[in-house]
Design a protein around this nucleic acid. Sequence first.
DNA 1: TTGAAAGCGATACCAT
DNA 2: ATGGTATCGCTTTCAA
Lengths: 335, 335
Amino acid sequence: MVTIADVARAAGVSPSTVSYVLSGKRSISEATRRRVHHSIRALGYRPNAGARALASNRTNVLALVVPLRADLNVPVMMQFVTATVTEARSYDHDVLLLTADEGAEGLHRVVASSLADAIIVMDVEAAEPRVPVLRELGRPAVLIGVPDDPQGLTCVDLDFTAAGSECVTHLADLGHRDVALIGPSPAVYERGTSYAGRFLRGFTKTAADRGVTAVTLPCVPTYDGLRACLDDLLALERAVTGLVVHNEAILGPLLSELDRRGRRVPDDISVLAVCPPDLAEAQSVPLTSVDIPAVELGALAVELAMRLLDGLGEPEVRLLPPRLTVRAGTGPVVA
Amino acid sequence: MVTIADVARAAGVSPSTVSYVLSGKRSISEATRRRVHHSIRALGYRPNAGARALASNRTNVLALVVPLRADLNVPVMMQFVTATVTEARSYDHDVLLLTADEGAEGLHRVVASSLADAIIVMDVEAAEPRVPVLRELGRPAVLIGVPDDPQGLTCVDLDFTAAGSECVTHLADLGHRDVALIGPSPAVYERGTSYAGRFLRGFTKTAADRGVTAVTLPCVPTYDGLRACLDDLLALERAVTGLVVHNEAILGPLLSELDRRGRRVPDDISVLAVCPPDLAEAQSVPLTSVDIPAVELGALAVELAMRLLDGLGEPEVRLLPPRLTVRAGTGPVVA
DNA sequence: TTGAAAGCGATACCAT
DNA sequence: ATGGTATCGCTTTCAA
């Protein structure tokens, strides 16, 4: 193994000089810097992470806590994870992966044993049980999602309230007077996942503001769940002409079932989805969609974590504005 | 911060004794052990990971390299990742997440800076460029997938050859004489992803052995790709009565399109899929499927990595036998 | 602008 | 069965 001492010897300087060349924490003459860098490359030196962490109290590692649930939007999750890793690398950091089933204990463990400098937590619930722990951990934390009381914590998320609102606005502007929201699984609402409730509120409020009739149908993400959901939908007294789907898993099946039941999109019914653009585009009829900006959110989470680690920046809640892309699946109401 | 010295003092023993109590590397009297454990709990002591790594040359961390591609089966990937983390924790290890875009350099980095003790690599190609590097790294490595030359490396995967074979066998036993394989995107074949070719070979060979006519159609995972693929399929001279789908992304759309084109499953055509059971079950018609045992593979990969770290066990290729579950989507040929 | 050396918190060897 | 302590590789203070 090549150590800092080997490099120092080869470059004819002291180990501390090599360290300072690497960290940039004090000025070094150009000549020395070059000799040191040359020796580093020549010997293929890489600082030992453990030694560095021990001496500096910095691991250059971010802990990322991912959910283990099956009822989540997995592709979006994975996008988020890879974006986090990629962004972390751009700050010369690595990512340690934790699963949510370790709970608060996992957070304690990682911090107390100095495995990571900061923590990023995905899939935050409204009454998030890990929030008090995160506050007391004494390490920067960034949540994806906004708990009821984000006091003292940094949170990032899509502005789901605005997203729900924008979907209704778009439909109302096209003349739709009767809309429905096909939401996530009831389980998602029941455990109070923060984004589901926020989207619903934006949806409902704007519908009221615009004088649009709005119904909400949570949907279990199975074929049977979908069928039941559509049965309910089509049995409504006033025919719904605009459908907002906040449940990626059933998007394809939903369109099939509508087709099977003789409802044409968008002629009979407009469909608008909350999902990644490629999913919206890959449907039998490309759907107007509000993007879930997983990649931006991942990068932003890392960026905010870095700021906190540098002692800059205060805890804050950062909501990204929704972006709605119009595609063939949305049309005006045909009288 | 609570150190091992604090614990030692509180328990009235030396630091080395505390260390030995924790590691179990020498015998300790029951009384001492109890006092030490009591102090550990009382003080909330957790060993410092960096210090431990520095002194012991063991990080208790596994590096996991995940692909960044979009054309992969993301839910299966995520299952694999979480299974890996969960299993690693059961060995008191953590998982450091790397993305494949760091390439061989990333592997060097992680090893040279002592960030991880072993490496698990997903999405291995037939002519995997990282293979030579992994061999020279001097650290245990486990590949998910089997490269052309697995010499000296440990590999785990589903036995895709047997899986392809079993699908044909099942259809042939039901009397099907004309079958087709709807495979992954052409891009997957082109870059020589190892599992795609192996499945194809098992499929083709068994078809020949059984005197069954077999055609293969790679399918770009978009709606247009699917339509083109089905056009080709239905234009064949001899009508295909059995369809094997090795491409999860288009499973739902495929069934919709078949329905739209008036082909009933399984009355007109039997459909058999290679995918997780829940996906097969969630279709409009539940499909017979060969499971991709992501969870077992993840756990197995970790287990083999642990063995290698303990100096037990040689490099080996471990293929899990396919398991076919019969569901409503497969039926006999109706003359 | 640079060097010497004291830690950081464990492990494991050498003693007893 | 237990203790003392050198050691791991790096950072950072203190000095020059």
